[in-house]
Nucleic acid binder design. Structure first.
Lengths: 211, 211
DNA sequence: ACGCAAACGGAACTCAAGTTCCCTTAACTC
DNA sequence: GAGTTAAGGGAACTTGAGTTCCGTTTGCGT
């Protein structure tokens, strides 16, 4: 099997000593091609040789640097965690939650991002390091949006001690549940309902941490 | 490729003309072995030849009757939808929701069921018929528990017109979100919070359908 | 009970995903 | 800007998942 892969914490594999120039270009091209393949065929239908071909790269390279689909996905997630999405600041908790719900809805229903998230999460269910990368990704996103909750506390809209992460999760969960499990429609009504339910629960103090 | 598979709606494949005796025993053994494999290796790590071996069945049989992992999983889901879980009736919405949250928590944290659900959902993300089977499964479960909500309406705890399915989904979603996406702890506190948030939102009329 | 064919099962076969080998290209250092 | 060597690439090779073939077992209608 392969040693020292990017996703894993320890060893320094190919691409770590000379990360510039060609190496960076190859990584970019391969990640993009891998994303395309995941969107089109889903996890399970991805052939690394095809990814290499579509990236205009030797398949030896793909096998050497990543080796398996989960490792490639973990690398993608690391990349995705970098690019941050700016949070809204509408002046009210309801407004901010509605904005975030709309953003998540937009992502999950997007023609490319929806299938991509499905495939990425499916991959993470079967591989520890990929799951860890996925959790890091969500931790980043939640941290970015936490200020909305803190501001609402300062404005006195919701009780002090409310856990921002719990609020964001409560908002996200129903949309992801629809995408992955129940298959129920993923529309504006669902987003609105998620935002409303979260806002009501937050005001009632359900998300106060040391309850 | 394979024609007439069990998961698909149309054709009558092997196992449909003489479903008794040996055929039934084979199906049972294969589904059990497939479940074990999914739990141990996750989707993607399942080898149909190994499933056949562990089921004590010729691998030709597995390939002929099912052919691919997704089709096998879809068949498993059809089986799982049959066996229903009795709903609670504690006399209050809070009690019923707490009971259901505990049941879901128990399932998702179970040593076998947790990984199994992960693998099944991962499979469904990449295959239409399997996704359809998964959605049917949840529709059945939701229908079973809907009476809790109807009773709460009758008792006057929550507004008339509340959509039972939305309530059940709102309860389930945070737990599934943790299992599949965020990786946050899946414990009693999470279940309690989900139940509380759902109850508060329901009382506030967030889940009234024709709002 | 009998007979037909549905379903099962062993074994040989195929072919493409993944590996290995070795040469070429081009980052990074001084 | 010259040398060192990390990283990439082409092509042959290996291996095991999936298929095919055909003989055997057994469910089911009569």
């Amino acid at each position: 099997m392969n040693e020292d892969t990017p996703g894993a914490g320890g060893g320094a594999g190919p691409g770590t000593v000379r990360p510039g120039g060609r190496t960076a270009r190859v990584r970019e091209a391969v990640l993009r091609a891998a994303g395309d393949a995941l969107v089109e065929r889903g996890f399970g239908g991805v052939d690394l040789a095809e990814v290499a071909r579509r990236a205009g790269v030797g398949k030896t390279t793909v096998y050497r640097r990543w080796g398996t689909v989960p490792v490639l996905v973990a690398d993608m997630l690391a990349e995705m965690a970098e690019s941050s999405q700016p949070r809204a600041d509408t002046g009210s908790l309801d407004g901010d939650l509605a904005a975030l719900a709309g953003l998540i809805l937009g992502t999950l229903t997007d023609e490319r991002q929806g299938p991509l998230f499905k495939a990425v999460i499916a991959t993470a269910t079967g591989d520890g390091p990929t799951a860890e990368a996925l959790h890091r990704f969500y931790r980043v996103r939640i941290t970015e949006w936490a200020p909305c909750v803190d501001l609402a506390v300062e404005r006195g809209e919701i009780p002090a001690g409310t856990d921002p992460a719990e609020v964001i999760r409560s908002l996200s969960a129903p949309l992801y549940y629809r995408l992955l499990a129940s298959g129920d429609p993923l529309d504006a009504a669902a987003a609105k309902r998620a935002a409303a339910a979260t806002a009501v629960a937050a005001r009632a103090g359900v998300f106060v941490s040391a309850a």
